[in-house]
C-alpha cells in the first residue's frame, strides 16, 4: 500500500516535470512560429494563469469563516504595498492573530 502510493507520487512528479518543460519549450518552438496569433486567442491564453490561480482560492473562501475571510482581505490590501513574500507572511500573521483570539 505504502509502496504503491510512493510510486504514484514519483510518477506524478515526473509527468508534472515533463508538462512543465513542454510549456517552457512550446513558447519558443511552437507559439513563436505561429505569429501573428489571433488577438482573441492571445487574450484567452494570457488569461490562463489568473483564471486558474484564482479558482485555487475558492475552496478556502467558501469553506472558511471570518478569520479566513479577513486574512484573504488583508492579503489583498498588503499586495498593494508590500513585496510578494512579505505580504504572504503578513497575511498569515493576521490569520494566526485572529485564531489566537478565538475568531
Amino acid at each position: 500500500m505504502f509502496e504503491t502510493l510512493e510510486a504514484s507520487l514519483l510518477l506524478l512528479i515526473v509527468i508534472g516535470a515533463i508538462v512543465t518543460l513542454l510549456n517552457r519549450l512550446a513558447g519558443h518552438y511552437v507559439l513563436a512560429r505561429f505569429e501573428p496569433i489571433p488577438y482573441r486567442v492571445e487574450a484567452a491564453l494570457e488569461a490562463v494563469p489568473v483564471a486558474v490561480m484564482i479558482t485555487l482560492v475558492v475552496p478556502a473562501t467558501m469553506d472558511g469563516g471570518s478569520a479566513e475571510w479577513i486574512c484573504l482581505a488583508a492579503a489583498i490590501l498588503f499586495s498593494l504595498r508590500l513585496p510578494f513574500v512579505v505580504a504572504v507572511f503578513a497575511a498569515l500573521g493576521v490569520l494566526l492573530a485572529l485564531r489566537y483570539f478565538g475568531l
Binding site: P49, V50, M53, I54, L56, V57, P59, A60, T61, E68, C71, L72, A75, I76, F78, S79, F84, A87, V88, A91, L92, L95
Partner: peptide, 8 residues
C-alpha cells in the same frame, strides 16, 4: 489560498 491570491 493566500499565496495564489497574491500571485493573482
Amino acid at each position: 489560498p493566500v499565496y495564489f491570491l497574491l500571485l493573482v
